[in-house]
Design a protein around this nucleic acid. Structure first.
Length: 375
RNA sequence: GCAGAGUUAGUGAAGCGGUCAAACACAAGAGACUGUAAAUCUCUCGGCAUUCGCCUUCGAAGGUUCGAAUCCUUCACUCUGCA
């Protein structure tokens, strides 16, 4: 068969995700096998860009139900550098996170640092936002860095563009380049990991692009699925488009995943309704800065996915916890909204930490609601 | 007592004849944030109308001027020197 001829490789045959159950709402329950242990899916993964989930101890992160944490290739490469991290016990020993760690490739910075970067076919040259230093990241170096960091799951270096009106014209270029770069990522990955036992290899995710164009999305998914990658990442969403547009793509892709043993990772989505929608359309893993960033900005979720600003004046004397009935540490310990409002107003970092714990628990609980039998 | 300096919206602080309802910072109020240049950013912040606009303000009271937060006089208070 043509597809098999293209993909006779070990990564495709390897069972990276064991599908435990299909739910009637379209979601699926699974066990993700990484070299750093198994993880229950669907799962939400907070971003610890610089090697830690901001303002939280690993124990506090784990206590929210989170099982995987992200780190970022671009940030850790620039500072302190993968050599330093390697010498300090790779990303696990560095940040003391015992579970699996996934690194993002730096592809997001192609988008978020668009004013500070230049794209060529070779790769992307970034100007350091602070020092002005120029640094080239290529598909090959991204893979090298991620492996040196010691991540258990890594992402192919892709070309991400925004989906605001201005940037949509770049979709085709980004789509094509992403696939050319994927081949180079895979080649480099194989070169550096072929000598490892398959069970000791990190999992490489290829990234699906294509903007809002359904045909491009179909083609991109096909290309990624026919590549020697261990996981499928859906990229290029939640970057300026409407929710309806994002949902349309997720809905379109849902029936097209061809291999239940490969995890599907939706990059960068973390608004509770979006998480639910994604999970109910076959997504197993999601990461996002939203729960922790919002928390540091005093915004938390309560029942019904409602956003609440804890700095609001109405909370001055409020003795209630962030969310009644919540089983997170912050709510369970009884910290009042009045206390949190005050600590936010005076700039006390503990307030952001307590709110982060709550928001992470809120998202973990959403994921757990799809996998009751596994708990 | 004498000589200087000062008193500006919640606070600090610019302004020194028209372009001043009055810079800026903080405080206050509201909001944004989706693979983290983000413990950040945006808006509002005398009163009313909330579109045009109108009204009351720059220690107090008088005065000069077409026009004063800005110049003059007196008073009140604050600070710094000398007694």
């Amino acid at each position: 068969m043509f597809v098999l001829y293209l993909t006779p490789m070990s990564e495709v045959k390897r069972t990276i995700l064991t599908e435990v159950k299909k739910n009637s709402d379209g979601s699926r329950v699974g066990i993700l096998h990484t070299r750093q242990g198994n993880v229950n899916t669907p799962t939400f993964m907070p971003d610890g860009t610089r090697g830690v989930v901001k303002s939280l101890l690993p124990e506090q992160v784990a206590a929210t139900g989170v099982q995987i944490v992200l780190a970022n290739t671009y940030h850790l490469h620039l500072q302190p550098g993968e050599d330093v991290i390697k010498s300090l016990g790779d990303v696990h020993g560095f940040g003391k996170w015992k579970g699996p760690i996934l690194t993002d490739s730096g592809g997001f910075q192609v988008f978020s640092l668009s004013k500070l970067r230049k794209i060529t076919e070779e790769g992307v040259t970034f100007k350091h936002p602070v020092t002005g230093e120029m640094r080239l990241i290529t598909p090959e170096t991204s893979i090298q860095i991620q492996l040196a960091l010691g991540a258990d799951m890594i992402v192919a270096f892709d070309h991400l563009t925004g989906l605001d009106d201005e940037s949509r014209k770049d979709t085709l270029e980004a789509f094509e380049r992403t696939h050319r770069w994927l081949e180079r990522c895979i080649a480099e990955f194989k070169r550096l990991t072929d000598n490892l036992e398959p069970s000791r290899r990190p999992i490489l995710f290829g990234v699906v692009q294509g903007g809002l164009d359904l045909e491009l999305r179909r083609k991109s998914l096909e290309i990624v699925q026919n590549s020697e990658v261990g996981g499928i990442a859906i990229g290029g969403l939640s970057v300026g488009e409407s929710k309806e547009e994002m949902y349309k793509i997720l809905e379109f892709l849902a029936p097209l995943y061809d291999n239940s043993a490969r995890p599907r990772f939706l990059l960068g989505v973390g608004d509770p309704p979006d998480i639910r929608f994604a999970i109910e359309h076959g997504i197993d893993m999601l990461d996002c800065v939203l729960p922790t960033r919002n928390a540091r900005h005093a915004t938390i979720w309560i029942e019904g996915d409602k956003k609440v600003h804890l700095t609001n004046a109405k909370f001055v004397n409020d003795p209630l916890p962030i969310m009644e009935g919540c089983d997170c540490y912050s709510c369970h310990s009884g910290y009042s909204r009045g206390f949190l409002r005050h600590q936010f107003k005076v700039g006390e970092p503990l307030a952001g930490s307590l709110a982060s714990i709550h928001n992470l628990r809120y998202l973990s609980r959403i994921c757990e609601s799809y996998r009751p039998s596994v708990e």
